[in-house]
């Protein structure tokens, strides 16, 4: 497994950190939590419930103090992680690292980046080879919907964007 961030392979700043699953984390909130706090959310975990819980129980947005959220793609065809990531970034205002883990493949990485993912754990050998060869994630530079990568409007259609 290699860690890929900001267009290059890097050392994982959270290597060795204890990682809490979503349910574990909810369970242990309010008691002492590991630091840095790293979460792994599996598909099916209701990210919107975080906000509700945060407000009811803690009076703040639920992800304060979280250093890294890993979202799992057990199979690349399970696309729930894209919506989970999108909601974390937009509706919950999460600004820390959001990492895709699991079946992370080259052809999906740009879609992940557009949904707000900024870190990747990669196992697939051909994907690693492409990235080692200097392949960039940005194979498409024109988009027909707003994304969370740096993008600027293209013309007057509000749903059309170009990569910045």
């Amino acid at each position: 497994m290699r860690y890929f961030k900001d267009g290059t392979f890097a050392d994982d700043p959270f290597a060795g950190a204890e990682t809490l699953s979503g349910p574990d984390w909810l369970e242990r909130r309010g008691s002492a939590l590991p630091s840095p706090l790293v979460l792994q959310l599996d598909p099916g975990f209701d990210v919107e419930a975080i906000r509700g819980l945060g407000q009811e129980r803690f009076g703040n947005e639920g992800l304060d103090g979280v250093a890294c959220v890993k979202i799992a793609f057990p199979k690349f065809t399970d696309g729930r992680g894209y919506s989970m990531g999108w909601l974390l970034r937009t509706r919950l205002g999460y600004a820390g690292e959001m990492r895709a883990v699991g079946d992370v493949l080259y052809d999906e990485m740009q879609l992940m980046a557009r949904c707000g993912f900024d870190g990747f754990e990669i196992v697939d050998e051909p994907t690693l080879a492409l990235l080692r060869d200097g392949r960039r994630l940005e194979t498409i530079r024109r988009f027909y919907q707003p994304g969370l990568e740096p993008e600027v409007p293209a013309g007057t259609r509000p749903w059309a964007r170009r990569s910045a």
Partner: peptide, 8 residues
């Protein structure tokens, strides 16, 4: 077209 959130 190529919607990032809804391709899978």
């Amino acid at each position: 077209s190529l919607h990032p959130e809804f391709s899978f």
